[in-house]
Amino acid sequence: MSFVRTLRQATAADHEMVDAHYGGFALDRQADYRSFLTAHARALPAVERALAEASDLPPWRSRTALLAADLHALDAPIPAPLPFQPGAAAERWGALYVIEGSRLGGQLLARSVPAGLPSAYLAAHHLPGEWRRLLTTLDTHAAGQGQAWQDAALAGARACFALYARAAAIA
């Protein structure tokens, strides 16, 4: 079984928990949408900051500026990010998997945002082939590592999901 498949299966409950936390926001209502984006702003910048410190990750594109611009357009302050400090380098790979997977979900959610509300963050999609390349790179990299690396990557993904859940619970 590929590591990506293992990662997806092992974090399915974590993903469902985050979906449940964010499912209560009605993105077609400005106040809820603002709260949704504020919750994301408590998590994404912290994760992206941790990823930017890693030199062994495949290329990825930050969405923090898009999120900040959408919040600014809604006259919403940018909250302080929650702490996120992955220990092992492998944990950053797991976190990257989560935030890049959320880019896919964001595209679906962007359809719920009415015209007139800013949606640059949610509408930020993968470039052609980008998601598939990331998954292939993750599988290839994981295959060359030991079980401890794979366990750490899984722990990083779970920590990232937990961060998003905590961020939503504050909103």
Rank of each mutant, 00 (worst) to 15 (best):
E16M: 13
F84R: 06
G156H: 09
L104R: 01
A95R: 03
A165D: 07
Y97S: 03
A12M: 12
A50T: 09
L122G: 10
L96A: 03
A90V: 09
H15P: 10
E16F: 06
S55D: 14
H15Y: 13
V4M: 10
D32H: 15
R158Q: 15
F36R: 07
G87D: 09
D139V: 12
P58M: 13
A43G: 11
A76E: 06
A50M: 05
M1K: 11
A54G: 04
A143M: 08
Y33T: 00
A80E: 15
G105D: 00
G101H: 00
P118L: 08
G146M: 02
Q147V: 05
A153M: 12
G24Y: 01
E53M: 12
A115S: 14
S62P: 05
D70H: 07
G24I: 01
G24H: 05
L44S: 01
A39S: 14
P59A: 14
Q85D: 14
P118Y: 08
Q107R: 08
A115H: 10
E130K: 02
P58V: 15
P128G: 06
A89Q: 11
H141N: 14
V4T: 15
A54S: 14
G144C: 05
H40D: 04
A159G: 15
G101M: 00
Y164E: 01
A52T: 13
P79C: 10
A162H: 04
A167D: 01
I170E: 05
D28W: 12
R63F: 02
G129W: 09
Q150G: 01
E91R: 02
G144H: 03
A73S: 13
H141F: 11
L96C: 01
M1N: 09
M17Y: 07
H40Y: 09
L138H: 11
P86H: 09
Y33K: 00
G105R: 00
F84T: 10
T64G: 04
G116E: 13
A153W: 13
C160F: 05
G146A: 03
I78P: 00
A115E: 15
R29G: 01
P118E: 12
A159N: 14
M1L: 14
L134Q: 12
D14S: 15
M1D: 14
R49S: 09
A90Q: 08
Q9E: 15
A88D: 06
H15N: 12
A143Y: 04
H141W: 08
P45K: 04
P83E: 11
Q9N: 13
T6P: 00
H21S: 13
L96H: 02
G101I: 00
A155C: 06
A162F: 04
D139F: 12
V98H: 01
D70P: 12
L7K: 09
L71N: 02
A143H: 08
M1H: 12
L27H: 05
W93I: 04
A69Y: 06
T140P: 01
D28H: 15
R5G: 13
G105T: 00
H125N: 08
M17Q: 15
A52P: 02
G23I: 12
D28K: 09
F161N: 02
Y22C: 06
R29P: 02
A152H: 07
R29A: 02
A50E: 08
L66T: 10
E48D: 05
D56T: 12
G146S: 03
A65R: 15
